[in-house]
Amino acid sequence: MGLKMQKIKKIAPIIISLIIALVLPIFVKNNYYVTLLDQALVNIIAVIGLNFITGLTGQVNLGMAGIFAAGSYTSALLTTKLGVNCWLGLIASIIVGIIIGYVLGYPSLRIKGIYLTLTTIGFGEIMRLLLTNMVNITGGTQGVLGIPSLSLFGFELNTPRRMYFFLVAVVCLMAWIAIRIVKGRWGREFKAVLNDDTALASVGIDISKVKLNSFILCSVFTCVAGSFYAHLMGYIDPSDYTFDMSTRFLMMLMLGGIGSVPGSIIGGSIITILPEILRFLKEYYWLVFSVIILIIILVLPYGLVSIKDLPFVRKLFGLNKNSLGESNE
């Protein structure tokens, strides 16, 4: 009996959020807002990726914009300039993601902490500057126009609404994969890197491989997100892929809760959608938004998923430490 209850308690939030996700478009009439929801889903994919490096192994990656851009431009350029099929473009993006994972992961074997963060910043800036200036290939500041929308078995995902349902499915799949990884052996190894490098080496785990894996996972997820972003928007230019974008992904990760896949989903949604909700504040809306986030970091450093651990929240809901876990009998 107890086991069943536990299972229900575990699955219930997933089912509820899925239902919300599926009925949401019914209430959102304006296509602009549906596009915003699409963007939130794309961002969630990237944040789930960032979670592998920054959330689990604790290495701060501020080059996300560069990785995301690589995914976008690979798909965009292959489909528009060479007329490659969208899905082949996606596969190419994934391959690019793997390569970038190696390229960025390699330095992490030698350097850590702030130095690694600076490396990723350097990578992001180099990517942005190259995209802006290699006009012949990337179109420079003009960007890439007319990126075709995805089509699934002949069904064109050419409206934000169609794309939405597709992306919900993709996010579910990616989140499922991510949770499997986080809960599995790799996830434990990632967390061990966060806690202590040396202890890990002494139990015979190859740290370099663990670190490389985390970078590759991050960069593949991010490139996939970048690719979908290009197909969703139909137009990309380098001004999107700035240091600002990198910090926004970090915001999403930390607002939701570092290390947690549901946290990434919550953070990705809120950071994408909240600014729109705050728009009524006119010119103050970015300010209010930034202040809210800063306060949350200072008060709730482990993000919104840790809200249930706050003493007063526990009291409010009459939770005690074990009520969600083992004590159900």
Partner: peptide, 19 residues
């Protein structure tokens, strides 16, 4: 406990200043 918070905390401070 983690320099992650410092990075994001100061980044947000920067955004507030710009706004």
């Amino acid at each position: 406990p983690n320099n992650l918070f410092v990075v994001l905390g100061t980044v947000m401070l920067g955004k507030i200043i710009i706004e």
